[in-house]
Structures are given as structure tokens and as C-alpha cells.
Design a protein around this nucleic acid. Structure first.
Lengths: 73, 73
DNA sequence: CATGAATAATAATTCAAG
DNA sequence: CTTGAATTATTATTCATG
């Protein structure tokens, strides 16, 4: 289930600002993917996503600049 | 005190891997700068630093790719 | 090896206050 | 407008379990 979920996570964060893992959890649920915060924390680490400061004063998850070639993709 | 502290934070994270704000707090203390976790959290936001996955499986603070021109500096 | 529930650890924010 | 102490919120990890 991991690959599919991670693809959808990418889609979601590219489409709208996600401030917390809870929000991401909800967004996934809306798309029929049920998971837990623990898993999302791991996915975020896997995918090299980072919580950055967005345009507004808010935080949001985004891809890290450096995509290490070490990890697949 | 903010400007000086933030400069030193930049130095520190460019020199060694900092995994947590507590570690950063200690590193600053070593350089004679005393602060608190609350302030570091704010500095990190100000400076657009992000907690990214480092080479090892570990996390570390690093500059975000996008330096918005919106904020000064 | 991926995951969830629970927990521990960490980080963001609130609430004074200078 | 910056900060610290305390608190809340959020995230990482541990400890099973499939």
C-alpha cells in the first residue's frame, strides 16, 4: 500500500497546502486512503518531505530540495 | 540579539548536523549564546530552515531550498 | 517489511513581560 | 518587536502484530 499512498501524498501536497500530518491524514481519507499519523511520519521521512514556512506565516509540507540519489525515485 | 544568534545558527548547521532544537540550543551555548527552545523554534521559522532527512537515517536542520524574497535577507 | 496504537520526544504557540 | 516559561500540539519512535 505504501507506493500508492505516497503517490497520492505527492499529489495532495502539490495541490494544496498541508500544515500538519493530521491534515494530510484527512486529505488521504477524502481520497479513500486510510492510514495513521505514525505511517505518515514515516512516509514523510521516506519521501524527503519537509515542513517549511509557506507564503503566509504558516507551515506546510513540501518536497526537500535535495533529492538524494541514494533512495529510489 | 536575534540577528547575531541567527548568524551563528547558520554557521552551526553548516558545520555539523543538528538533529533537534535541543542540540542546537547546546551548540549555541558552547558559543556563549544562551537561548530557549521557544526562541529557536521561531528562529527556524524565520530563517526558513527545515528538518530534513540527512544522509544517515537521521534528521537534521538545513536551509530550505526556496528563499522567498518576501522576507528580508 | 509495512503498519497501527500507544508513548516518548520534539516543536509550535500562548501568555505574560521586558 | 523579542523573548522565556509553560503549555499544547505535533511528530518520531517503540513495541507489538500481520
Amino acid at each position: 500500500m505504501k507506493p500508492g499512498r505516497q503517490s497520492v501524498i505527492m499529489e495532495i501536497i502539490s495541490q494544496r497546502d498541508i500544515e500538519t500530518q493530521s491534515q494530510l491524514l484527512e486529505a488521504l481519507a477524502e481520497r479513500g486512503i486510510k492510514s495513521t499519523q505514525a505511517t505518515l511520519s514515516r512516509d514523510i521521512k521516506d519521501m524527503h518531505l519537509v515542513k517549511e514556512q509557506g507564503p503566509a506565516g504558516t507551515y506546510r509540507y513540501a518536497p526537500s530540495a535535495k533529492r538524494t540519489r541514494t533512495a529510489r525515485q
